[in-house]
Write a protein that binds this DNA or RNA. Sequence first.
DNA 1: GATAGGGTTGTTTTT
DNA 2: CAACCCTATC
Length: 695
Amino acid sequence: MEKFLKNLQEPKGDKSKRFFNNEFFESNLNKEQLVIVNNIIGPMIVIAGAGSGKTRVITYSVAKLISDGIKPSEIMLVTFTNKATDEMLKRVEALLGYELKGLWGGTFHSLANRFIRIYTQQAGLKPAYSIIDQSDSLSLIKLLIDENYTNKILEDVPSPKLCFKILSNAINRNKSIITILKENYPYYAKGEYINILKEISKKYESRKRYNNFVDFNDLLVIWNKLLNTKEIAQNIAEKIKYILVDEYQDTNYLQAQIIYKIAHINKNIMVVGDDAQSIYGFRGANFRNLLNFGKWFPNMKKYKLTHNYRSTSEILDLANNSIFNNKIQFSKKMMSTRRNQKKPIHITVINDLEQANFIIEKIEEVRKRGFSYSDISILYRSNFHSLTLQKQLQSHKIPFIIRSGISFFEQSHIKDIIAFSKIILNHHDELAWRRIFAIIPGLGKVNAEKIIQKIISEENLRESIFSYELTPQNLSNIRLNKKSIENVSEFVEYFKNLSSKSIPIEIFNQTMKFIKDYLVKNYNNSEKRLKDINTLKEIYEEFSTIKELLDDLNLRTNEIKNISTNKDAELNDHVVLSTIHRAKGLEWKFVFIISLSENLFPSVGNITDQYKLEEERRIFYVALTRAKDELFLITPEESNTYKKYNCLKISRFIEELDKKLYEKITFKDNYHNTRKLYNKSLNFITADKLINNKD
DNA sequence: GATAGGGTTGTTTTT
DNA sequence: CAACCCTATC
């Protein structure tokens, strides 16, 4: 602590002097915020309600620390997404007036990777380890199940998805597999099922080590383990003097442990969060971390931000009224600073087509009032709720972007290309090899498997693949026809060339030579996919080493989303479609929350368990508090997705609200005779099909 | 052993 | 609807 105080010195340089006198902070922060920024030392917790200027407090705190003489490299800022880090650092830079270098900023996962790259050996990993994303983890588990349990009784073998979920939950919550089963899937918590699950868990762990893989959970587990070594914890704490953690309510057991292990040494830690906005329970987040913080740091200071600058009091009253129904919470009432006399609106429509048409009419109305598309967002609980809407927006030429859905890097044509880069870094990557060999025509699963096993068991890839393993002579041991052998040797020739390169963009270009025909032939809507590939090319161009490129690609899985608009020129002015989860932290003047029907929102699976239901309500709360000026809540009575939902009731989240706080309206569909057209023209529409569709 | 075609299954939210 | 699995055929 004393050391820390010594660092408080006069800021150097004219610029910082101009900016960082007390007046500067006083004129830019309210009283609640100012107290925090002025007292930033020691352990502290900030309970920051929706729209209370949380980001402002964090960015000003960082700026304050730096102006007080703390080096950027002595600060660690942990956020929920990499994008959030980028944005915050940009704002800090704007405050400082110069570029910020060396600050430890990022998500838990990306920071974990930075540290593991430093302490690779101590972590028991090889330097060439590669990070695998969720879909890779899933593929690996699926592989293990296929290899080991094909002759078992079906009911005893977990599905790969469920298996991954259970194992993941056990790790992130620090509970045993049996406990997770009993708590969440009691009907599976018996006999052989448990045994197989445990076995798969062990096999999965050793298979990852064999392949030199690190999955998302490993990143946290390994970082946490590293910190058990005193010297390492000490070393890290010497580097990092001050820690700020955003969205602390969405941290899980492991993440809280990690923070504690570093922070308890210098004790300069600020956590910021809002229990009412904890919506990541499904991946192990526990908002009680917020409550327990005081137990770990007994002399912490506690602050609250209760003034909401975002929403009108009409919107906020409704949000407060909704969250009031949650029993498990620290009560806190947000106070509004704005008023506009417009109550939120609730409307019941026949189906999701009418829902879309209502939104379109409103959008046009709002535009006539002088607002732009980007003032508007449409939020939903689950991706598939937006499908009909996408179709309708498209045909009415309303520009929009989608923040939800499959991430850019999870698309299979993108993964195909990246696989080639992956094996250059990590020869043992069996998942990448499988992808690559699936591309070679005439080479089926069985033969590919034989070759793969040979390759990954060799220490030196270049030796094995080129000098003898994959030559035509050797391949004749494996039963293949002439054409197939030719194809494979063609691949070997090509791969010789590829593996001699080390610059990412060269590797990309070489990969494309080989793969382009395949992509065009095997995927539909190749036009769109080729466009994606260009985006990928730009990313490759940014990096100078494959390692950096791949780390970045794997940790930023969700940053670039499918973009679908009518004209690229309109990209900067568009309506936003988003899941509520991905809308966290954002705001719009006009917000539509759709599919507020029982079974859709709250989601079907989460209505029996009180704890889960309350999380659903918090999701609703997050959605409500995204709106600044006007809020529309829409309930369709029928929803036509792959599963047809009929006679849907109004969501309990609406029914339980005080009727005085919102206005019910009706809507006459001006566009179509909805009922007649509904079943004919609109069946199930997928995003993929939409992008292809140019009506 | 590869592959095409038919039948089955399934979607909550994400680093 | 599409991804996935299984089966029949080459």
